[in-house]
């Protein structure tokens, strides 16, 4: 399992691409498809997220990106 997990909000994303640029393991990309406002939203490639959270800060939208981290549970 990857250390992190990133969820992009497809409808909120304006496709600016700053998260793609910011992601250290380069696991984000702009989708080939369009969201309903006509932007190519950012999406997670599906593996390799470290949960660093940098994309969260690079994203200008308040709820554009949510980052999760792997934690041990009893």
């Amino acid at each position: 399992m990857d250390r992190g997990m990133v969820v992009t909000n497809q409808e909120e994303c304006k496709g600016c691409g700053l998260c793609v640029e910011a992601c250290p393991p380069r696991v984000l990309r702009l989708s080939a498809g369009l969201n309903r406002y006509g932007y190519h939203p950012a999406e997670y490639s599906g593996s390799g997220c470290t949960g660093c959270g940098i994309c969260y800060y690079a994203c200008p939208e308040p709820g554009g990106i949510t980052v999760e981290r792997l934690v041990k549970v009893a």
């Binding site: 399992m1 992190g4 997990m5 949960g51 959270g53 969260y56 800060y57 709820g63 990106i65 949510t66 980052v67 999760e68 981290r69 792997l70 934690v71 041990k72 549970v73 009893a74």
Partner: peptide, 9 residues
């Protein structure tokens, strides 16, 4: 056992 918890939202 591990699972994901939100760290940045």
């Amino acid at each position: 056992m591990s699972s994901y918890a939100i760290s940045h939202e």
